[in-house]
Design a protein around this nucleic acid. Structure first.
Length: 590
RNA sequence: GGGGCUGUAGCUCAGCUGGUUAGAGUGCCGGUCUGUCACACCGGAGGUCGCGGGUUCGAGCCCCGUCAGCCCCGCCA
């Protein structure tokens, strides 16, 4: 007796194979499709394992069963009983895992009547999906689709594999509170009003950061958790207001130890998804990533690299570069192999994309044989281009300006070029580490240094002397894991000296009183004997999306929110009843 | 907070330069059919053109506002 057998069924529909021929089976499932030929009726019966054809003919099914089968609507839940029969050679269905066999049903019972589904579950090949709004409203139906079932089944396996991998590395799974304390920095908190304490609020955790550090202080040594996190910020295709992280922290470690743990987990997860990847992952300095790719999450599948052409183009006296090239501006560009395949329209669209990001414009030269064309072609020769690595059939895309502007533009250009020219990737799975991030970044409004990461990140020991004198030159012991241009997660070595941590909070502009109120429990912990420690958090939803090849985070979350943070299925958020508000000491101001 | 795209039958979409009774496929309902697997064939029902206002002799189409979904910028320590 297999584990899938119950008191009401013997097998799952999708499990039947040749070796079951002759067996009498009882199946429960949803009517995926019905084909009624008059004298004989075929049902495609579906469950989480797959689809099997059930045939009902007058030779074996009693008349009342035949009649009932002829009136079944889509998505009705039925229990059928019958014999597994080998299909004749010319009637096998190669597209079905169960296609060698069918079930000749002798009994059929409707156990779950269904109204006509609002959106189709069974789809024809090439049939468009219903609007996402409807799919989210009818989530119970959308989740029946084999694609989404496969995503969530993979998600389950990845979760189990992550747990097993970390457990084998002697990490302890420990849960931390969901009702916690508002944090002054970072993302907006989701707040939960306290009934018992009028005017006071819990916050949902943006991450278990402080708790996991306290677990290190407590001596648990290695902790992990599949942690649910909440951030009340505007959403994106790859961002949900609540999400899951594989959160981990370890004591008596340096960066290399943490990176090794995370690599072990990621390699295991990709293996679970059927992809072989090798360790160790290459490491890039943040500065080099920005220089060569214009982003801190480069897609290393393609060897397209940004170059500094400031010196090379200076003697050409290109007016565009001369007018725009002031105080520290550099000319940077991308030599695109095979880029002459880009049409004039393509280049115009690239220029438009560059402009939207605030760039001063796109200059370009296309080289086809002896012919040079493009916005600044008359200033170039084939020889000049050759020195820049731009050969026959290539195109040079160029920008000018301060790095802060040109880097995002070149990043976008690189992505667009990859999309349009579609060069063969050097590898399908390009993991890398981005290291040596700056500790501070300029505040968007004041330009003053503010912490680029969370305020528990330790400065690079070689740069501590520059904390006051040259803050922007200070590196952090912070690292990001990047996969095919996606940030999978980040981590750092933490500050474990209470007085250093206190100094950092003061730098953030917090008064001693605020520090005590908000972070007193952390400082108290650090002062009580804290081991050196560091950790990491892997964005699990994103990992599932990428490992599964899903197009959106919403496809790998059973009940996701919309981009406006609404839950369309259950209708959250919703207005609260007046008496509930009163109990919580709240008043809604319209 | 800003920008873009979309919204027409249960679902997916078409609908010309503003012009008569808003169409197709699929699903649904009824019928025929014993080997289909998107079964086939015959017939039928089905519309607040997201919502509100405006322009016009006349609006699915133009204008303003609004709601919803998606995508991007800001934001996301």
């Amino acid at each position: 007796m297999s584990a899938s057998q119950t008191s009401q069924r013997t097998h799952r529909c999708g499990a039947l194979r040749k070796e079951h021929v002759g067996a009498r089976v009882r199946l429960g499932g949803w009517v995926h499709r019905r084909r009624d030929l008059g004298g004989i009726v075929f049902l495609d019966l579906r469950d989480r394992d797959g689809i099997v054809q059930v045939a009902l003919g007058p030779a074996w099914a009693p008349p009342d069963v035949l009649a009932r089968a002829g009136s079944l609507g889509a998505e009705t839940v039925v229990v059928v009983e019958g014999e597994v029969v080998l299909r004749p050679a010319n009637m096998k269905n190669a597209e079905l895992a169960t296609g060698d066999v069918e079930v000749h049903a002798t009994r059929l019972e409707v156990v779950g009547a269904a109204t006509t589904p609002a959106i189709p579950v069974a789809r024809a090949k090439n049939e468009e999906l219903p609007a996402e709004e409807l799919r989210l409203k009818q989530r119970h139906l959308d989740l029946r689709r084999p694609e989404l079932q496969a995503y969530l089944m993979l998600r389950h396996r990845l979760l189990q594999r992550a747990r097993r991998t970390l457990s084998e590395l002697e990490f302890l799974e420990i849960e931390t509170p969901i009702l916690t304390k508002p944090t002054p920095e970072g993302a907006r908190d989701y707040l939960v009003p306290s009934r018992v304490h009028a005017g006071e609020f819990y916050a949902l955790p943006q991450s278990p950061q402080i708790y996991k550090q306290l677990l290190m202080v407590a001596g648990f040594d290695r902790y992990f958790q599949i942690a649910r996190c909440f951030r009340d910020e505007d959403l994106r295709n790859d961002r949900q207001p609540e999400f899951s992280q594989i959160d981990l922290e370890a004591s008596f470690v340096g960066s290399d130890d943490v990176l090794a743990y995370v690599e072990a987990v990621l390699v295991a997860l990709w293996d679970e998804a059927g992809h072989a990847v090798t360790r160790p992952f290459p490491r890039l300095r943040w500065r080099d990533a920005m220089e060569r790719f214009g982003t801190d999450k480069p897609d290393l599948r393609y060897d397209l690299v940004i170059a500094d052409w400031t010196a090379a183009v200076a003697p050409l006296a290109v007016p565009f570069f001369q007018t725009a090239g002031q105080n520290g501006a550099r000319v940077r560009g991308i030599p695109v192999r095979g880029g002459s395949a880009l049409s004039r329209k393509d280049v115009d669209q690239l220029a438009e994309a560059a402009k939207q990001l605030g760039g001063s414009g796109l200059a370009w030269v296309k080289r086809q044989g002896d012919q040079l064309s493009g916005s600044v072609a008359k200033h170039f020769t084939a020889e000049t281009l050759g020195r820049l690595g731009v050969g026959d059939g290539d195109v040079a895309l160029m920008t000018i300006g301060p790095d802060r502007v040109t880097s995002p533009v070149l990043d976008r250009l690189r992505q667009e070029v990859i999309r349009r020219v579609a060069p063969a990737p050097a590898t399908a799975h390009a993991f890398c580490w981005v290291m040596d991030f700056p500790l501070f970044e300029p505040d968007a409004e004041t330009g003053k240094p503010v912490f680029a990461h969370h305020p528990f990140t330790a400065p690079h020991p070689d740069d501590v002397a520059k904390l006051e004198s040259d803050p922007f030159a200070c590196r952090a012991l912070h690292y990001d894991a990047v996969y095919n241009g996606n940030e999978l997660g980040s981590g750092s070595i933490r500050i474990t000296d209470a007085s250093v941590q206190r100094t950092v909070f003061r730098h953030l502009g917090l008064t001693d009183q605020e520090i005590g109120e908000r972070f007193g429990f952390l400082l108290q912990g650090l002062a009580a004997g804290a081991p050196p420690h560091g950790g990491f958090a892997i964005g699990f939803d994103r990992v599932v999306m990428l490992a599964a090849g899903a197009g959106s985070l919403r496809d790998v979350i059973a009940f996701p929110k919309t981009t406006a943070a609404r839950a369309l299925f259950e209708g959250a958020p919703a207005a609260a009843r007046a008496e509930d508000l009163a109990t919580l000491h709240l008043k809604v101001v319209p």
